[in-house]
């Protein structure tokens, strides 16, 4: 069972372990071509509901985009599920209509069209999660530079679980 709120300690422990491993491994040739894994962001898992349904889109006019890569070799990851939720003109972050998942394309890119994201708890922001078996979970909370923005970008570099 994943507990969305109290995973901060485990996040710190795992990110510390990842850092330590990458520092140790930096001398070796095995992961010399690796790229830095994406760290979870503070508050990234807030109002997360595991298992957001795969959707074509959640609305119109606003796009959440990004790419998903593998940390070990930088390869694009296809068919990876990214869960997305945000406060939009449809309601808050806990509104089910604001939760959906998409799969990445062959080039690792993903895109979800939804209703306009609106400022919530003081900042216009989205929430994204990678929370499946193959890689370590990552929770992101990108903030839009302006509430008038029509898109927000979030990339994932995943580490094998």
């Amino acid at each position: 069972m994943h507990s969305p709120f109290y995973n901060r300690r485990s996040f710190l422990v795992t990110s510390g372990a990842v850092l330590a491993c990458s520092a140790l491994g930096a001398a070796g040739p095995a992961i010399a071509q690796g790229i830095a894994p994406t760290q979870s962001m503070r508050g990234g898992s807030n109002n997360y509901r595991p298992g957001a349904p795969l959707v074509e889109k959640l609305g119109n006019g606003f796009f959440v985009r990004g790419r998903v890569l593998r940390a070990s070799d930088g390869a694009a990851l296809k068919n990876v599920r990214i869960q997305i939720w945000a406060a939009t003109t449809l309601g808050g972050e806990r509104e089910p209509a604001n939760h959906g998942s998409v799969l990445t394309r062959a080039d690792g890119s993903y895109e979800l069209e939804m209703e306009q994201i609106v400022p919530n708890f003081g900042q216009p922001h989205a929430h994204l999660a990678y929370d499946d078996r193959d890689f370590r979970q990552v929770f992101l909370r990108p903030v839009m530079p302006s509430a008038a923005d029509r898109s927000v970008n979030a990339d994932f570099v995943l580490v094998a679980a």
Binding site: M41, R42, G43, S45, G122
Partner: peptide
């Protein structure tokens, strides 16, 4: 009531928002 995790993050001083 609106968002328990965001509010608890703020009260425990671990919120990502600088104004909390």
């Amino acid at each position: 009531i609106t968002s328990p995790p965001d509010t608890l993050d703020a009260l425990f001083l671990v919120s990502p928002t600088p104004f909390s």
